[in-house]
């Protein structure tokens, strides 16, 4: 049983990772806690379910999710964050929290409070068995896309010219600029990629549960924050590890401690402990 629990919690962690990468990217580059990222996760799921139901194709739905959230992410940067970048960090944070609330209620007003289900979603009931455990296709997709997309992203960042430009902009925007890297373009790319990954996570969760509802990102937005801090604010590798770890902690908590404590609280307790004893994050060097 324990083996199955561990494996399933890692699947959950992969979904967290896809969602949290966007937050990490934004924090690494701009030092903004991008709470509204969770609304893009939900937006992606809505665009996905609507297009999938209209066209009968889940693949087109996924495309719509990626496109809509990517564009919305760029727009949020341009119109909500860019004008206030010179202000202290709490100013964009407040804007971000406000955006999350407005967008969540916007979804509710536009699409109704009961949520939308897929007309035809074969993937959450189709299964494969491996290692003595049954996985549905969405779980496979969660692990697959986390490994492939985050792996590709890290390879690009570490080994290509674009990636070097990105890292240069993160560590010293002025210097990067003088070497011909356009920091504005890097920022746009950042929001585009981070939001698209978030939308993929949103669409996958929607396929898993067969439901898109306005508040599906609400708790995740704060979990994402915990992950980013645990991972050492701005570190992609740290975020990945912290996501898997949070999945594991929650699973153990819900099995052995749920009589006493909400597993959601467990993640945050862990976060508080880390902030007290290792404020630079678990996976970064001091």
């Amino acid at each position: 049983m324990l083996f199955e629990v561990v494996i399933k919690s890692l699947v959950n962690g992969c979904m967290y990772a896809l969602m949290a990468i966007g937050l990490t990217l934004v924090y690494g580059l701009l030092r903004i806690l991008h709470i509204a990222h969770a609304a893009l996760f939900t937006l992606g799921a809505y665009a996905g379910v609507i297009v999938a139901n209209a066209t009968g194709s889940i693949a087109l739905g996924m495309g719509a999710a990626i496109l809509s959230a990517g564009v919305a992410g760029v727009l949020i940067y341009r119109f909500a964050y860019q004008p206030v970048l010179k202000h202290p960090h709490h100013v964009p944070l407040i804007i971000s929290v406000g955006l999350l609330i407005v967008l969540e209620d916007g979804f509710r007003i536009l699409f109704g409070g009961y949520g939308i289900t897929f007309n035809d979603n074969p993937y959450n009931t189709a299964t494969v068995a491996a290692l003595g455990i049954t996985f549905n296709y969405v779980e496979i997709a969660m692990v697959g896309s986390a490994v492939v997309l985050i792996g590709t992203f890290m390879a690009v960042v570490n080994h290509t010219r674009i990636g070097i430009g990105w890292r240069a902009t993160v560590s010293d925007p002025q210097m990067a600029l003088s070497f011909g890297v356009d920091p504005i373009r890097v920022r746009y790319m950042n929001f585009l990629i981070g939001s698209a990954l978030g939308a993929i996570a949103g669409m996958l969760l929607a396929l898993m549960t067969n439901l898109v509802e306005p508040a599906m990102g609400a708790t995740l937005s704060y979990k994402g924050l915990a992950i980013v801090v645990l991972g050492g604010l701005g570190s992609v590798r740290g975020t990945l590890l912290a996501s898997l770890m949070l999945g594991l902690i929650e699973a153990m908590g819900s099995l052995y401690l749920s009589d006493h404590l909400d597993p959601n609280a467990l993640g945050f307790l862990f976060l508080i402990a880390v902030l007290m004893f290792r404020p630079q994050g678990l996976f970064t060097r001091a």
Binding site: M1, E4, V5, K8, M208, M252, S254, S258, D259, P263
Partner: peptide
């Protein structure tokens, strides 16, 4: 043993593993 989960839970893999046991 009884199982409780938070309202935000959507992936029940670990609870189901325990149920199977």
């Amino acid at each position: 043993k009884d199982f409780f989960f938070p309202l935000s839970e959507r992936q029940f893999g670990s609870i189901i593993a325990a149920l199977r046991a």
